[in-house]
Write a protein that binds this DNA or RNA. Structure first.
Length: 465
RNA sequence: GGCCUGAUGGCGGAGUGGUUACGCACCGGACUGCAAAUCCGUGCACCCGGGUUCGAUUCCCGGUCAGGCCUCCA
């Protein structure tokens, strides 16, 4: 089965056909770096990481170019920098580093490129220049505005006819706009704010233009895949599309496939900073492995809303414990074989990145592998290969099982645990059950669980501190 | 007000025009000094009304409910 992706523009799943299979391009809207991102902000990071991995598998590692931008020019950044009395770089560098660290902890591969607005300023100014030149944009009172009347398809992506939007608009229209839907490409900076030179006066770019400029600079138009959160469909992506098509590069298509992920919910509501119901990824990562959080994030199909609960995390932990347990029991099996099963196993992911179905396939493989190991069946090797290969496409199970279970223990603790287990073994050999149980209790107090097996006792840290 | 999603067992969550994945939880059993893990097995659902059909949870229409976007937003 070929890869199928749900395209927001078509409102349907379509077979994925890249313009150039030797250079597959994907762009995903990234964060504005003015504070720590909440876990909902990382859903697209993880989802599109899976797609990135899948595309690399299908087209080759070198053939996929994935750009994820960083917005480092913004009112909220300015406010934060002013509040702290530091240059904006101090704020953006700090939170970008935290963001990238958190993304890595969640198992996301680094994108091929991570362009920043401040480093794309020439391309932004040049692009605005082209838009003004061909009357797709006009200067007014130190601003430059995009002329939505110049683009007949405006509203097509989000399914919003222009007139209806105006009728329903709840925002005051700036007096210098020719049309209420026109949006800012360039605006003057207020005193004390960062400033760049332009033919229309000193100022800074509007929100939407940076993405179009970065795409043109990093990837070239049209791109294959443009991704982001569902809330970006309007106005951000609608506006990007309008600019991108109108700037005269000669393509009527800006992105071949538009992919949008659904939200994380806290209770019934969207997790959002303004509602104050957020969980920071940075904090969550202190409490459990990134892989657990990643599992929870991929536990629902990416276009569905996902309820973020403690129980979801506990279940994710449970699932991964199970899988790593199987791998631990299969540690003496060397992965190998034809890998012929994998194409079948990949099917859920090829069907619009159906991660819950792929996770079920992972568990099925694990159960089969466990049985094969138990029976000493010859297909254990191929099953292990398939399990690890499918898991890799989803960014799971790449840790050593022993590290997974014991990773929370430092050397001193590990030595002490080994000592206690040896003592307990001695007691068990002597059938001194009271002593053995006493030692178990002592280990339990250390947050350690002992598991007696045919090859001796093994242990694991029960919960990460 | 306009536009757009979704509604599946106790919970999470796929999928399907006709035997309804999977996980967690629960219950029974095997195994186990204890415990964990594992294995076997039972039970449990497709929002409401109408239509199409031999047959609908699945397709169509209407309704109800929930959520999202229209303003910064993953």
């Amino acid at each position: 089965m070929p890869l199928q992706l749900y395209d927001t523009m078509a409102r349907a799943k379509r077979p994925f056909v890249p313009a150039n299979p030797r250079r597959v391009t994907m762009y995903v809207c990234g964060p504005t770096v003015y504070n720590y991102s909440h876990i909902g902000n990382f859903r697209p990071v993880v989802v599109f990481d899976v797609l990135f991995r899948l595309l690399r598998r299908l087209y080759g590692d070198q053939a996929v170019i994935y750009a994820a931008n960083v917005t480092d020019v913004d009112d909220k950044i300015n406010a934060k920098a002013a509040e702290e009395g530091v240059p904006i770089e101090a704020v953006t560098d700090r939170y970008l580093a935290a963001y990238n660290g958190d993304a890595a902890a969640l198992g996301a591969l680094p994108p091929t490129a991570q362009p920043r607005a401040t480093q794309t300023m020439d391309a932004i100014v040049a692009m605005i220049g082209r838009l003004v030149e061909n009357s797709s944009a006009y200067p007014a009172e130190g601003h430059v505005l995009f002329n939505t009347q110049a683009f007949s398809d405006y509203g097509k992506l989000s399914g919003r006819p222009l007139d209806e939007m105006i009728a329903g608009a709840r925002v005051e229209v700036a007096p210098y706009k020719q049309h209420p839907a026109d949006f800012v490409l360039w605006k003057p900076s207020k005193p004390g704010e960062p400033v760049w030179e332009s033919p229309w006066g000193p100022g800074r770019p509007g929100w939407h233009i940076e993405c179009s400029a970065m795409i043109e600079q990093e990837l070239g138009l049209p791109i294959d895949i443009h991704g982001g959160g569902i809330d970006l469909v309007f106005p951000h992506h609608e506006n990007e599309l309008a600019q991108g098509v109108c700037d005269g590069h000669g393509h009527s298509t800006y992105a071949q496939y538009w992919l949008h992920n659904g939200f994380l919910n806290t209770g019934e509501e969207k997790m959002s900073k303004s509602l104050g119901n957020v969980a920071l990824a940075h904090d969550l990562l202190k409490q459990q492995p990134g892989e657990v959080i990643r599992w929870a994030l991929l536990g629902a199909h990416y276009r569905q809303p996902l309820s973020w609960t403690d129980d979801a995390l506990a279940q994710a932990r449970n699932s991964l414990d199970h899988l790593y347990g199987v791998l631990g029991r299969a540690r003496h099996i060397e992965a190998g074989g034809s890998g012929a099963l994998l194409e079948d196993q990949l099917e859920p992911l090829l069907d619009d990145i159906n991660t819950p179905a792929a996770m079920a396939a992972l568990k099925k493989l694990a159960t089969d592998l466990d049985a094969a190991v138990r029976k000493g069946a010859p297909n254990a090797s191929a099953l292990k290969q398939d399990l690890l290969a499918l898991a890799e496409v989803m960014g799971f199970l790449q840790a050593d099982p022993q590290v997974w279970f014991q990773g929370g223990a430092d050397e001193g603790l590990a030595a002490k645990i080994d000592e206690l287990i040896a003592a307990r073994d001695a007691a068990r050999v002597a059938k001194d059950w009271a002593e053995a149980d006493r030692i178990r209790a002592e280990l339990t107090a250390l947050n350690v669980e002992v598991m007696d097996g045919p090859a001796g006792a093994t242990w694991r840290i029960k919960e990460q501190a």
